[in-house]
Amino acid sequence: MWRACPGNRKARHVVRGEAMKKVQFNTPAVPYLLLFPQLAIVAVFFLWPAAEAVRSSFYLEDPFGFGSTFVGFDNFVDTVTSTNYGRVARFTGVFTFLVTILSLGAALLLAVKADKVLRGASSYKTLLMWVYAVAPPVAGLIGILLFDQHVGPIVKFVALLGWHLQIGVDYYDTAFAMIVASVWKQIPVNFIFFLSGLQSISKSVQEAASIDCRSGFRRFWTVTFPLLAPTGFFLLIINITYAMFDTFGIIDVVLKTEPGNNPVTLVYKVYLDGFRGNDLGGSSAQSVLLMIVVFILTIIQFRLIERRVHYT
């Protein structure tokens, strides 16, 4: 039938880890030769650093470079119990939630409309997706210009409403700018996936629905939306990952690299503590905690993708 969402076949193979070809080559040395570059890079630049992160999370580095001491779970305990970490974790949660909901919602609305209109559909599509190619820090740079204290039109506009927006000074105002820039940057990806999900719903199903159900709104919620749900679940994970990790560039630029008392996300804190604070153990412990979060997200992602198989 139709493909409710692309990529499900991949997931099935990934989860089972099978090669599916009926016929394969049997030449003994060739596959190792082909795999060597990839495996070498993975070993040196992935496995080694990941292991290093885990190892140093259990050590306390001497600040003057005289070796390190094994401290067990102290780094983790210090991290989790520090009030600052709790504050950052809470902000990350709220930030992730808002960015995800807002960018998914806006993209879904736009995709549904773009799927419906006959005239100008391809122009809308192009105009709504090109921001995909804009780098997060560039988005941040344009963002701080729009939110600039002296020249920013947004600041001037909200001043008319009595809101004296001060990014870099006010905690919530800064967070607001970060969220707007992050949502702006993420709408295109969601839009592309939702639109292709909508377009892959078979025409005959939609025609059947329009015979069975008069109200367009009801039809959307009872037929289109459930068929789109697999794409939505998949995007949910993608967006959470984006908000937690890929917004680094936006945040760094909005903060003009000087965080001060402003909101930061967990990943940003790993970077701050590791590179600015020279707290190797603490930063590593935070890395490991984040690794666990990503790990769980990835597992959920593959579970969800497996379920999408039902729709094909």
């Binding site: 992935f46 650093p49 140093s56």
Partner: peptide, 12 residues
Amino acid sequence: TLLLPLEVRILP
């Protein structure tokens, strides 16, 4: 390698 983005293992 799909499990861990570069950002979380940036320091090592």
